[in-house]
């Protein structure tokens, strides 16, 4: 009988951990108190599911250049907001407002991306619970 209860408990526990939400949440990886604005030249675009990534070279106060990764929503969500794959061109200077990764690496969650023509797009993953999630898209 103990075996039966243990087996059921284990099984239920296993299924219980499986959340019904979409992909990973904002808070799993990023720190909502560490807001940052990055300005830099685009070096690479990973237009990919379930999250897109793009990379920019950012110069710090001391003149050191570092390559930063910016995580955004997947192709579906971004294109519904009007950002298409070809809109990001290598060498473009982008302004990216976001939040730093908890592990302190050169990775941010890109909440807002401003293109050279002044157009700006909400970059967050829908339903991730991060700052501005489901908020007004000005």
């Amino acid at each position: 009988m103990k075996l039966k209860i243990a087996a059921i408990a284990l099984f239920v526990a296993g299924l219980g951990v499986y959340p019904l939400s979409a992909h990973h949440s904002f808070a799993a990886e990023f720190d909502g108190t560490k807001a940052v604005r990055l300005v830099g030249k685009l070096t690479k675009v990973d237009w990919s599911n379930p999250h897109s990534y793009f990379y920019i070279d950012v110069q710090d106060d001391k003149g050191q250049v570092a390559n930063w990764g910016c995580e955004g929503a997947g192709p579906g969500a971004l294109s519904r907001r009007g950002l298409k794959k070809g809109d990001l061109k290598i060498g473009d200077t982008l302004v990216v407002d976001g939040y730093r990764a908890k592990d302190g690496s050169h990775l941010i969650d890109a909440r807002r991306v401003t293109l050279p023509d002044g157009r700006n797009i909400y970059g967050g993953t829908p339903g991730d619970g991060g700052p501005g999630d489901n908020g007004p898209q000005q």
Binding site: L3, L10, G14, Y18, H23, A28
Partner: peptide, 21 residues
């Protein structure tokens, strides 16, 4: 065998979900 099956498949589902993290 039944306990191994229930445990392994539960763990696989948890691992599958955890890949994203």
């Amino acid at each position: 065998a039944a306990i191994c099956s229930l445990t392994l498949w539960s763990a696989i589902i948890v691992a599958g979900r955890a890949i994203a993290y």
